[in-house]
């Protein structure tokens, strides 16, 4: 879906900021709705068809995380949710695991917000089919016996927008090209991604898929599904059962 046609719900408890965000999205988005906290946002969702939500994390009454959980619990094809977090509220790893489509840090650059919205609204096939513009970037290359073994063995875990992978490779938070071979499945995940987070301690990294080669596109689309439920990128592979430090603390059980 094109941002131009989309209805965007902006949730922010700071009235001035809410207004500014609305104003900055107005020229590019179809329709802007606003709410001052999670509860008000849920009410808006009852009365209007919303395609994407941009919400602050910390708000009185109901914060962004609760809102996200409720939206996801309500429907498997609900609106995209972009979490805007302030200082140390929530890490990207946690937000993406909770099912957010993207996270933005305050203060939010207008361009970043628009880009995130466009990506979140876009059809996954169209989005991933875009040509790989990366040429001589760093590469994440790994070979697995097979997908099942890799998943069950804790080597990799897929979310609906990317994957968490166990790797000894030190990854920069830049776009990288991907080459993951699954011998048994005779599949090769080839394309590009962005390292959303990496954890040197657990030797895990969370990678969002940016583009895919035609040869593996359908396979990955099938693997990641079309639902909006489940993690966007899981915060762990199957092997690391222990939650990563800080995870439980910031995502307060609201």
């Amino acid at each position: 879906m094109n941002l131009k046609e989309a209805t965007i719900l902006v949730v922010e408890d700071e009235p001035d900021l809410l207004e500014v965000m609305g104003e900055s999205l107005a020229p590019v988005a179809g329709k802007i709705l606003s709410a001052c906290d999670g509860e008000e946002a849920l009410k808006s969702l009852d009365t209007a068809a919303v395609d994407a939500i941009v919400t602050d994390v910390r708000m009185p009454r109901m914060g962004g995380v609760s809102l996200l959980k409720q939206v996801r619990a309500a429907s498997s094809h609900g609106p995209a949710v972009i979490l805007v977090s302030g200082y140390s509220d929530l890490t990207a790893r946690e937000a993406l695991d909770l099912g957010a489509d993207a996270t933005l840090a305050k203060p939010v650059r207008r361009r970043d917000m628009i880009e995130a919205l466009e990506r979140a609204l876009a059809d996954k096939r169209e989005l991933w089919r875009r040509p790989n513009l990366l040429s001589d970037s760093a590469q994440l290359a790994q070979e697995f016996a097979g997908l099942t073994q890799a998943v069950e063995g804790g080597e990799i875990a897929f979310g609906r927008g990317g994957f968490c992978i166990r790797t000894r490779q030190e990854l920069s938070q830049e776009p990288i090209s991907l080459s993951l071979k699954f011998a048994f499945d005779k599949q090769n995940l080839s394309g590009s991604g962005i390292v959303r987070w990496d954890d040197l301690h657990d030797q895990e990294a969370g990678i969002e898929i940016i583009s895919l080669a035609e040869c593996c596109l359908e396979w990955i689309l099938a693997l990641t599904g079309s639902s909006r439920q489940g993690p966007f990128i899981p915060c762990h592979t199957a092997k690391t059962s222990a939650p990563s430090p800080g995870h439980g603390e910031a995502v307060t059980r609201q």
Partner: peptide, 24 residues
Amino acid sequence: AGGIAHEINNPLGIIHGAAGNLLD
């Protein structure tokens, strides 16, 4: 400081947003 960052980050967001809007 954590709290203060919050106190400042919000108005900063407003300025940031307003400036972006102005440029637009």
